[in-house]
Every structure is written in structure tokens, then in C-alpha cells.
Amino acid sequence: MSDYNFAYLDEQTKRMIRRAILKGLAIPGYQVPFASREMPMPYGWGTGGVQVSAAVLTPDDTFKVIDQGADDTTNAVSIRRFFEKTAGVAVTEATAEASVIQTRHRIPEEVLRADQILVYQVPIPEPLRFLEPSEVETRKMHSLEEYGLMHVKLYEDISQHGAIATSYAYPVKVEGRYVMDPSPIPKFDNPKLEMAAIQLFGAGREQRIYAVPPYAKVVSLDFEDFPFEASKADHACDLCGAEDSYLDELIVDDAGGRLFMCSDTDYCSTRRKAGHVGAQGVPLGEDAA
């Protein structure tokens, strides 16, 4: 790939993205418009995250990509290969070894450190979009801190269902000012949004970058009598026995039998390597086909 610049993007594009990242960090939760480029992968497939990663990576980095918490999902493989080729970075599946992690739909279970950067792929950055389709209107609402519409939506959920009917992409308020879409992570992950690592959010098609600096205050919207609740399947991981991780539910036989396993594949295999065994698991290594 010597025909292409380091990390694919040209320097002027990287500078433009870098300036947007700095403003994003300076105004936590505010969506900074940026002139997203056409990338060699489709819009909606992580082009925002890819552009942010390209602007952030150095050749010294160790890069990890997850989709649904897993390193081996096809789109994660594809993005990881892209940066292996274009930036020559080392890659890893181990969360602890990664300096930059690009993710779609999950925050790793392992607590991230101050020297790590988490880059989110964001499909629709505007938390108010499904309540108000017009960008002109939602921009006005953010400027006036007019979040009543969101309030009403959550309130209506409660009167109809007895609970807030949002289970992922659950809106948060950052530093008491901007309501922000944390990307479609399950609300189980919301409490982790207050972390030591730098969090960068890239939405390529919608041309927005936003950020949450380390330790910034991130509060999931809720009501005094209906407090936010991070939820997961009421099971332990059937492979590693973890009771604190977000679980995928698999249908394993024609009778509809279920199996629950960690969505974070690195977390699960690290536990299994350490000898933890779940109800349907075996110690790691014995299942190598």
C-alpha cells in the first residue's frame, strides 16, 4: 500500500480531523462538524471511527478492533487489516495490550487505563434525531439546552410500559450540558462511560466527531422515581462463568436451547485461560478443533 499515505488519509484531512478532535475534547459531548471523507469502506460500516483512528494512530501503537465485543467479527477483521496494511501498526486482541481500541457497539469489560484511547463507530450521532428528524431543529435545541423532547419521550415510555423502553444507545448528559448519544452500546455499558481513557466518537456519514475526556461526568438520563438501571441477561457466562459481563444469547439446538456467553471475547478467553469454567464450558485449549 505504498501508494497511500501513512494511515491512508492525506495530511490535510488528518489535520482537519485532529482540529475537530481537540475541539471535541474541549467541549465534551458537543458534536463537532467535520468534512468526512469517502473512505474505501461503506458509510455506516465504521468510516467515522476509521477516520478518527487514522488521525490518532502513530506507528508505535498497538491497535485492537472489536465489533459486538468480538475481535473476530468480519467487520472488525476488515478494519484491523486496513490499518495493519496502511499504518503498519501492531495489532492485538488483548484489551490490556492495546493503546488504541476501535469499537462498534461495546465498551470492553476490562477497565481501561489513562494511556488508552477508545474510538467509537457512530451511526447516528444525534441523540434527538429519532424525536426530531431535522438537523436545523436539533442543532437549535442543543444550543438552547432544550432537551424537553427527550424528557417527554422517556416519560411516555414509563407511562406506557412502566419502564424506559430504551435498551441501547441510551442517552447521556455530559458534564451537565450536552445530551449525547453514546453510540449503540447496550445500556449495560453506560456506567463505564466515566473512565480514565480518552473516548472519541466518529460518525462518518453524518460528518460529526465528539469526545469525552477522561473522568468527565457522564450521567444516563433518568427520573428520580425511575432511576437508570444497567441491565444484562440474568445468567452467568456458560463458557467462563463470569457474572459481571454482558452476555450474548445463542440458540444452540433445534429445540431452541439457549447458551449465554460473554460478548467481550477477550475478556472471556482471558478468564478461561486463567482456569475459570462456566456451566457448559471446558478449560481453554481443549476445544481447539
Partner: peptide, 26 residues
């Protein structure tokens, strides 16, 4: 349009799982 339209064929099982749990609970 085509990128965003076609992206819904990518795995979404994490989000779907959270919806499953919510609807079961409700």
C-alpha cells in the same frame, strides 16, 4: 444511503440482546 442501508446486515446482536431482555422484562 447504500452504506447506511446495507450496514443493517452487519451483526447487531448486542443491541438485539438488550432489546430481548427489555421486552421479556416488560
Amino acid at each position: 444511503a447504500t452504506g447506511f442501508l446495507e450496514h443493517i446486515k452487519l451483526p447487531h446482536y448486542v443491541d438485539f440482546q438488550s432489546e430481548l431482555e427489555l421486552i421479556r422484562k416488560l
